[in-house]
Design a protein around this nucleic acid. Structure first.
Length: 891
RNA sequence: GCGAGAGUGGCGAAACUGGCAGACGCGCUGGAUUUAGGAUCCUGUGCCUUAAACGGCGUGGGGGUUCAACUCCCCCCUCUCGCACCA
């Protein structure tokens, strides 16, 4: 009667774990090593769980269950990244508050995850939408807002490492005397400009339909990624976080992390550090002013900001200055107005208008032909006094470097293309350094390699690398250039106009007429969280006016104790905010006095193993590191990095080998699989499919396979013809045979090694081999089966618990010691050795184990079958590898 | 274009440091049990030749190193992912 009834078994043990709080973990347990294993917490979508979720979650669960059995104190939490647009869109369509829909979705996700038997400590559950949680998200924002970046500060952190650059309290920002003299308001404005969270007016991607600005990554071909709505560029005042201040540390400190190289590469690439020079070109308004200006510069040096008559460019190739034949400004560049001559004005205006409608992403589309217009203006090349025409073109971005370039078509692909399109001269100033190298054909493509200088006056013959540093130094001495570092990374646009995100703890001061003065105040820490206001409907305003501005006056306005009238900030934070620090809150999710207790932070952090999809390579994982470093600088956390080891699970494809999607009709619903074959079967199958990090297609027949295996394990121990759950007659309390012990210990060894390597697929195959061999035995000793059940437990915990109980145990096996393999049983008495003749397999002999090379050769040579193989041949050489093979090399 | 990873049976895959290629599972062949189906158990299963493999060929293709190569080196092809006017 008791077939393998997974429904009964799984619900029984899930109830047991819940009732006994089996996986509740204490903080700071003395004498036990800690292990913090983290899953990327899900966005609880209305769709419910996807088969991709249990893949990573099962992997971490195996590691956790295994590590507990090895005696470690394991933190394994789960929560919800639940702010975001979908719930708000739903609210807009159905008129139901996003919180209600969000809670409904969380309930579904929680039920589905519990159904899979993951050993989470559910008492640590959190949602980014809980006021108790986002209270601290707002608090961290205030920490960022209260900080400035002192790039010169040299200091030693609690990790004992000396660093340059530190986020420091704004109160410690040195205020220049002239600012101080200008009064309190000037000082406050000065501070605001230096904060790590600041307001800035910049062109952004505005999506009227969604009612919010979007990050560049969220815009595809001028339309929103979500919903495919049009996106326009608007100048809007937005909150920015100064992540660029941390660019160097974010890039450099990657090297100590155990992360996939590809992810580190992507982050470094995203940060995109480049070293070059800023060079000033005097505008050619009147020839004679150039010499006056250079003489002046020689005396005063290179100024922080260029004068109004000067065009500052950034280049990584100052060695090609003699090859400059034109210059390009981004269409938005402030000097365009001044440079444009009357006859070129209409064309320039038209070009600027068109460019303003394109997003950065559109403009950087490589497939596009180069475009641009001549301004009519000229600048003077500081190396040789040549007049150079100045163009505007959208291949130069205002947001990178100085928003202006010197163009060297001979040695830059983009400039080459542009020069070809507009018939601008191309001058060669670099030649290949090897005399025998072919002369580059500058009619067909640019020569971008390093080489030696030519056509560069006295510099001719200087190698590129040397030339770069020397000419930069030379121009710097003349006050017209300086060394400069640039980053591809931009400051993080941190505000959205949505309702369903964290409100900012910021107030704007109003003057007597009710207009903003530009000065701001923050909510006190005690008054957090800033809760969401009631709004009548969730329709976007249709203007860049944030959703929160629909709130009533009681939420929007107040008068401070000093009588100053204040208006609330009505933007909200992006979804990344909550996911930036959730791993910290899991250590101490009930703390009402602080975002985390320092003792607990010190105990649990950093995360030892973080498993999730690669899609967060540069967003979540970079933002999190940034926040963590700021908290580190401000003394709130003790370790400079949050995630020590990162593993990316590979995507699970549909049965047809394509990405799973509703439109392709190849989506597998994990809940259905659990219903038909059980949670243990789903867990086991997802781990058996192949290596964790590999992309792999779903095979329903594969689920059948592991399900059959679970049935075989069941029948290996349980009499499935009996009425109740009874051990099979073959399972006996007797000593094991040598063969059985060898099998057991080999399996223990292999499964243990495989879990350590996260090679769960091979671990499972070893357990299958064990089961196949043991099932053949008519007597199956308990002392062999018990350790096996423990090995199975991390993979198929429900079945393992049930079998453990059937074996007579009354308590959960979750904390039973992990079996240890006895080396004595890992060695065989005899081994089969392949015999090769000249490298080809020709036979096999059975010999005692542990023979040395010399002994093995002697035994092989004495063997009759081997003698036959080499009969009549001349053996030139014999190679014997102990335990492996013998090779007779014959002529 | 640049960067990274990967190409092994009909399919998912294994092979740790160069040492028996294809473990384990799916599928398929034949059989047992069964009224039948299902379930379960047993058997075989890289390809070719063959009555049979103790023969030949086999890890994307070509070359090389080595007694020995999926593994190391060189060239080429294909696929996946990431980046892609960042001066």
């Amino acid at each position: 009667m008791p077939r393998y009834d997974f429904k009964r078994i799984e619900s029984r043990w899930q109830q047991y774990w819940e009732q006994h709080q089996t996986f509740r973990v204490d903080d700071c347990v003395p004498g036990k090593a800690k292990l913090y294993v983290l899953d990327m917490f899900p966005y609880p979508s209305g769709e419910g769980l996807h088969v991709g979720h249990p893949e990573g979650y099962t992997a971490t669960d195996i590691v956790c269950r295994y590590s507990r059995m090895k005696g470690m104190n394991v933190l394994h939490p789960m929560g919800w990244d639940a702010f975001g647009l979908p719930a708000e869109e739903f609210a807009r369509q159905k008129g139901i508050h996003p919180r209600i829909k969000t809670e409904e979705n969380i309930t579904t996700f929680r039920r589905q995850l519990k159904m899979l038997g993951f050993s989470y400590d559910w008492s640590r559950e959190l949602s980014t939408t809980d006021p108790d949680y986002y209270r601290w998200t707002q608090w961290i924002f205030l920490q960022i807002h209260d900080s400035w970046y002192d790039s010169q500060c040299v200091w030693t952190g609690p990790d004992g490492v000396e660093r340059r650059g530190r986020g420091r309290p704004i109160s410690e920002l040195p205020i220049p005397a002239e600012v101080q003299a200008a009064g309190q308001a000037a000082v406050r404005r000065y501070q605001d400009r230096h904060r790590l969270a600041y307001l800035s007016e910049a062109p952004v991607n505005w999506c009227p339909e969604l009612g919010t600005v979007l990050a560049n990554e969220e815009v595809i071909d001028g339309r929103s990624e979500r919903g495919d709505h049009p996106v326009v560029r608007l100048n809007l005042k937005q909150w920015m976080l100064r992540i660029t201040a941390y660019a160097d540390r974010l890039s450099e400190e990657l090297s100590d992390l155990s992360w996939p190289e590809s992810i580190k590469y992507m982050q470094r690439n995203w940060i995109g550090r480049s070293v070059g020079a800023e060079v000033d070109f005097r505008l050619a308004t009147a020839e004679d002013q150039f010499s006056t200006w250079t003489a002046q510069r020689q005396a005063t040096g290179f100024p922080q900001e260029p004068e109004s008559q000067v065009l500052r460019i950034y280049t990584t190739r100052p060695d090609t200055l003699y090859g400059v034949t034109y210059m390009v400004l981004a269409p938005e560049h402030p000097l365009v107005e001044q440079l444009t001559t009357p006859e070129h004005r209409p064309a320039v205006e038209e070009y600027r208008r068109k460019a303003s409608l394109k997003s950065d992403l559109d403009r950087t589309d490589l497939a596009k032909e180069k475009s641009g217009v001549f301004t009519g203006g000229y600048a003077i090349n500081p190396v040789n006094g040549q007049r150079v025409p100045v163009w505007i073109a959208d291949y130069v971005l205002i947001s990178y470097g100085t928003g202006a370039i010197m163009a060297v078509p001979g040695h830059d692909e983009r400039d080459f293309e542009f020069a070809k399109t507009f018939g601008i001269p191309i001058v060669q100033v670099v030649a290949p350094s090897h005399a025998d190298a072919a002369t580059p054909d500058l009619q067909s493509s640019a020569f971008t390699d390093y080489g030696v200088a030519i056509n560069s006056g006295a510099w001719d013959g200087t190698p590129t690398a040397e030339f770069k540093t020397r000419i930069t130094a030379d121009l710097a001495a003349r006050g017209v250039a300086r060394e400069a570092v640039n980053y591809r990374l931009r400051d993080w646009l941190f505000s959205r106009q949505r309702y369903w995100g964290e409100p900012f703890p910021i107030w704007h001061e109003l003057d007597a007429e009710g207009n903003p003065t530009g000065l701001m105040r923050t909510d006190s820490v005690e008054s957090l969280p800033v809760l969401h206001p009631h709004v009548e409907d969730f329709k976007p305003t249709g203007t860049p006016e944030p959703m929160l501005s629909k709130a009533g006056d009681d939420w929007l306005y107040r008068t401070d104790s000093d009588g100053v009238r204040l208006k609330r900030e009505t933007n909200s934070m992006p979804q990344w905010a909550g996911s930036c620090w959730y791993y910290l809150r899991f250590c101490d999710n009930r703390n009402s006095g602080s975002f985390i207790d320092p003792e607990k932070e010190k105990y649990w952090l950093p995360v030892d193993l973080y498993i999730g999809g690669a899609e967060h390579a540069v967003l979540h994982l970079l933002y999190s590191r940034f926040w963590h470093k700021l908290l580190f600088d401000r003394g709130h956390v003790s370790h400079p990095e949050p995630f020590q080891r990162l593993v990316n699970q590979g995507m699970i494809l549909g049965e047809n080998g394509e990405k799973m999607s509703k439109s392709r009709g190849n989506v597998v619903n994990p809940e259905k699989v659990v219903e038909q074959r059980g949670a243990d079967a789903l867990r086991l199958y997802e781990m058996f499919m192949g290596p964790l990090e590999q992309v792999k297609p779903w095979q329903t027949s594969g689920v059948e396979g592991v399900y059959r295996f679970l049935g075989r394990v069941w029948r290996m121990l349980i009499d499935d013809r009996a009425e109740a759950v009874t051990l099979d007659a073959a399972v006996q309390d007797c000593p094991a045979t040598d063969d059985q012990l060898r099998l057991l210990h080999r399996t223990i060894q292999a499964v243990t090694d495989d879990i350590d390597r996260l090679a769960f697929n091979t671990a499972i195959s070893r357990m299958m081999e064990f089961t196949n061999a043991m099932t053949e035995q008519s007597v199956r000793p308990k002392c062999v089966l018990e350790p096996f059940v423990l090995l199975l437990a991390p993979f198929a915990p429900h079945l393992a618990e049930e079998l453990w109980a059937a074996l007579g145990h009354t308590r959960t096996l979750a904390y039973e010691p992990w079996p240890i393999s006895d080396p004595a049983w890992l060695v065989e008495d005899t081994v089969e050795i392949p015999i090769q003749v000249s490298g080809k397999l020709r036979g096999r002999i059975v010999v005692p184990a542990g023979l040395s090379a010399v002994e093995l050769q002697a035994v092989a040579e004495a063997d009759e079958s081997v003698k036959k193989l080499i009969e009549g041949r001349t053996v030139v050489k014999v190679i014997a590898v102990p335990g492996r093979m013998v090779n007779f090399v014959v002529r």
